[in-house]
């Protein structure tokens, strides 16, 4: 049984990660690997689409914390979109919306990237 899946696509020079399933201490290394691969090829504009993300634990939150500083140093960002109330509550409980740009949908996240450039 596959608990977690990541699909990667590119849109307007932004890399979009579609997450599906359960992000916990077991599956977090998979996300870490994908983000590390993007860093290695200097891709710093990232959207994480959480539409089909059913669950996140602190191990999953830790992966975003591991890369956000580097990404922003390179004038990029990790923007999170389409979160269910259940997943958003975990981010919110720990105050993560203070640090991360969490948008309602992908269009809004893309727009926020454009306003960064201008």
């Amino acid at each position: 049984m596959s608990q977690f899946k990541i699909d990667l696509r590119e849109k307007n020079d932004i890399n979009v990660l579609d997450l599906k399933g359960y992000l916990d201490a077991h599956t977090a290394p998979e996300l870490e690997k994908v983000l590390q691969n993007l860093m290695d090829v200097n891709k710093f504009n990232i959207i994480v689409n959480c539409k089909d993300l059913s669950y996140i634990s602190s191990a999953g939150l830790g992966v975003f914390m591991a890369y956000i500083e580097d990404v922003r140093k390179h004038k990029g960002d990790i923007k999170l979109t389409n979160m269910s109330a259940k997943v958003y509550n975990v981010f919110d409980l720990l105050g993560f919306p203070l640090l991360y740009d969490i948008t309602k949908d992908e269009t809004e996240a893309i727009k926020n990237f454009s306003s960064l450039k201008s």
Binding site: S58, L61, G62, M65, A66, I68, E69, V90, L93, L94, G95, F96, L98, L99
Partner: peptide
């Protein structure tokens, strides 16, 4: 948490979360 986030720390939130939940 404000200090945690602004210094881009990682990990160490498990017990804090348990107590909140």
């Amino acid at each position: 948490m404000q200090e945690y986030l602004s210094s881009y720390r990682r990990g160490g939130l498990g017990m804090h979360l348990m107590k909140l939940l």
